[in-house]
């Protein structure tokens, strides 16, 4: 029941509702639209100012910095900082990529991170959500899965150091127990395993996020849809594949965007565990940006990396927005 004009029943003599898809024509002399505009501005202004000062300005400033010299920050060098990034081996180590021998460089490492982390954390999150929704009495278990999200990345990094350490670490000892001696090593000391250890840690911390999003989406599926499927003779797999999964599409989109952003901007885990090593084998763009800007004080190069990260992260965001618009 609404109190004003609208499609529902109304109290008092209000204007008759318009047919769907038709707007009320603007009437001359009606002050309402103008007042609404002013109100809108008043409400939007604080947020706009905050976004401008703390988001737009830094983004533009960072973009500009990437076009200026590292030496004085005043000489315009165009795209030279970007070109320099690809000349060295820190961002892309083409020689090692061709030989399939790590270190591959920060950008390929980020792509490997996405390729492993995204499907793993998403499918594990979905599996957990499907399990948890059937176990409402064991809701506390959700906390255990989600707790990884609550631990600061720096702490996670330090914990991980011990988890993958040969002497005391659970993971190498587990492989030792099942007879895989090749992985009974200090994972962070070897270029072949250092990045993988970080990715697996990241999966542990991020699965909780996927689970929560999927849980919310699964709870929102009307029972009648599932019942209709059952009446039609669908089994559990068919219910999941043809009823639940299509309804989870927008949640999948959200998880993909958020995960890719996290995977591209990740820094704390690398900083507190491997420091990008050995030999850059676990380096990522976010950490390389930190090194260039705050360790080597090359703000132009650091800003160029920041710009690259933003552009790369923009791809899934744009695709998701387009997809959402198409669905709407």
């Amino acid at each position: 029941m609404s109190l004003g004009a609208g499609p529902g029943p109304s109290i008092g003599p209000g204007p008759a509702p318009l047919p769907a898809g038709r707007r009320e024509p603007a009437r001359a002399g009606n002050p309402r639209p103008r007042r609404l505009k002013a109100e809108t501005l008043v409400f939007v202004l604080p947020a706009f100012l905050l976004v401008s000062v703390f988001l737009l300005y830094p983004v533009v400033k960072s973009l500009l910095l990437s076009l200026y010299s590292n030496e004085d920050g005043k000489s315009f060098v165009g795209l030279a900082n970007f070109a320099a990034l690809f000349r060295g081996r820190d961002i892309v180590n083409l020689r090692n990529i061709l030989r399939l021998r790590p270190p591959f460089g920060a950008l390929p490492n980020n792509l490997i991170w996405i390729a492993i982390h995204l499907p793993l954390s998403m499918s594990l999150g979905l599996a957990c959500a499907l399990l948890m929704i059937r176990l409402p009495r064991l809701a506390f278990l959700r906390t255990f899965v989600f707790v990884g999200m609550l631990v600061p990345g720096v702490v996670t990094g330090i914990v991980t150091l011990f988890l993958f350490e040969k002497g005391a670490g659970m993971i190498p000892n587990l492989f030792h127990l099942i007879g895989i001696e090749g992985l009974y090593i200090n994972w962070f000391s070897h270029p072949q395993t250092a990045l993988l250890a970080l990715i697996l840690t990241s999966v542990w911390t991020w699965t909780g996020y996927s689970m929560v999003v999927f849980l919310a989406a699964l709870s929102g599926i009307p029972q009648s849809y599932l019942e209709a499927g059952i009446v039609d003779g669908a089994n559990a797999w068919q219910l999941f594949r043809y009823v639940k999964l299509p309804l989870l599409r927008s949640s999948i989109g959200t998880i993909v965007v958020m995960s890719v952003i996290q995977e591209l901007t990740g820094f704390d885990l690398v900083y507190s565990s491997t420091y990008g090593g050995p030999g850059g084998a676990s380096n990522v763009m976010g950490f390389q940006m930190y090194l260039e800007a705050f360790k080597y004080f090359k703000f132009g190069t650091g800003s160029a990396i920041a710009t690259l990260i933003t552009l790369t992260a923009a791809v899934p965001i744009v695709l998701n927005v387009r997809n959402s618009a198409r669905q709407a």
């Binding site: 270190p103 000391s189 070897h190 270029p191 420091y275 990008g276 090593g277 050995p278 030999g279 850059g280 084998a281 090194l291 360790k295 080597y296």
Partner: peptide
Amino acid sequence: GGKFQTVMWDQLKLLWAD
């Protein structure tokens, strides 16, 4: 110091591993 120090520490770790 500077970049050299970070690179030397990190690269020698790589040499030890491989």
